[in-house]
């Protein structure tokens, strides 16, 4: 007699085993599907993040309106920080888009602020260099010329004072000479008058000596 109960038990066992295997396979498929979904989500997050980064970099460069050299420096700086940000974003692959966007905004704000400061400092440095290299030498040259000119003017002023003094002395001499000349002319006039009188008296005495002689 065949032990049917044992065969039945074995079939049941085999059947349950088969069922467990099928359920296991189904679970694996579901887990794989879930994993793929999560991977796709993470990939999408990363791609969106990179797009936002690129746009942000363009905006940063445009807003700062810096020279190509400065822009290059800033971009290199931003690129370094971007790598850090990507690492962080990848580390949070399972998080939501909103969280990633918030974190990204935080990074971007920090990067833009630092870039702005760096840009301002470089601009200020450039102005300092221009002042030091171009404006200061010109200013110093002008100051040196000004000192020379002031010395020259001072010398001229001294000469002018001396001239004035000499001129004053000469002018006094000229006045004195003119006054003296006038006085001499008066004396000459007196002698001329005297001469005329003596001429008259000579004629009168001539008339006495020679009454016929008419003058």
């Amino acid at each position: 007699m065949v032990d049917t109960s044992s065969e039945s038990q074995a079939e049941k066992y085999q059947q349950k085993k088969e069922e467990r295997r099928e359920r296991r396979n189904e679970n694996v498929t579901e887990r794989d599907a879930s994993r793929r979904i999560k991977q796709d989500n993470a990939k999408n997050h990363f791609q969106q993040t990179m797009l936002r980064f690129n746009e942000a970099i363009d905006r940063t460069v445009g807003v700062l309106a810096v020279t190509p050299d400065i822009a290059k420096g800033l971009l290199q700086d931003i690129a370094g920080k971007t790598e850090d940000a990507i690492y962080d974003i990848n580390a949070w692959g399972a998080r939501t888009n909103e969280q990633a966007a918030a974190k990204l905004d935080q990074f971007l704000g920090k990067i833009v602020g630092e870039a702005q400061s760096a840009g301002d400092k470089r601009k200020a440095d450039a102005v300092d260099r221009k002042v030091k290299n171009k404006i200061n030498p010109r200013r110093e040259r002008v100051q040196r010329e000004q000192v020379k000119l002031e010395e020259k003017i001072e010398k001229l002023r001294a000469q002018l004072e001396l001239k004035k003094s000499e001129e004053s002395s000469l002018a006094n001499q000229a006045d004195t000479a003119a006054t003296e000349a006038q006085a001499l002319r008066e004396v000459a006039k007196g002698h001329q008058t005297n001469s005329t009188w003596f001429v008259t008296m000579r004629h009168r005495i001539g008339n006495i000596i020679n009454p016929d002689h008419t003058t």
């Binding site: 003296e180 000349a181 002698h191 005297n194």
Partner: peptide, 30 residues
């Protein structure tokens, strides 16, 4: 009288010359 007149005339000329010289000097300085 002749001598006196001649002396006065010469003095008048000399003083006039001196006055002219001084005026020329003053003009030159100016």
């Amino acid at each position: 009288l002749f001598t006196a007149q001649a002396n006065e005339a010469e003095l008048a000329l000399n003083y006039t010359d001196a006055a002219n010289a001084l005026e020329q000097y003053a003009d030159a300085v100016d």
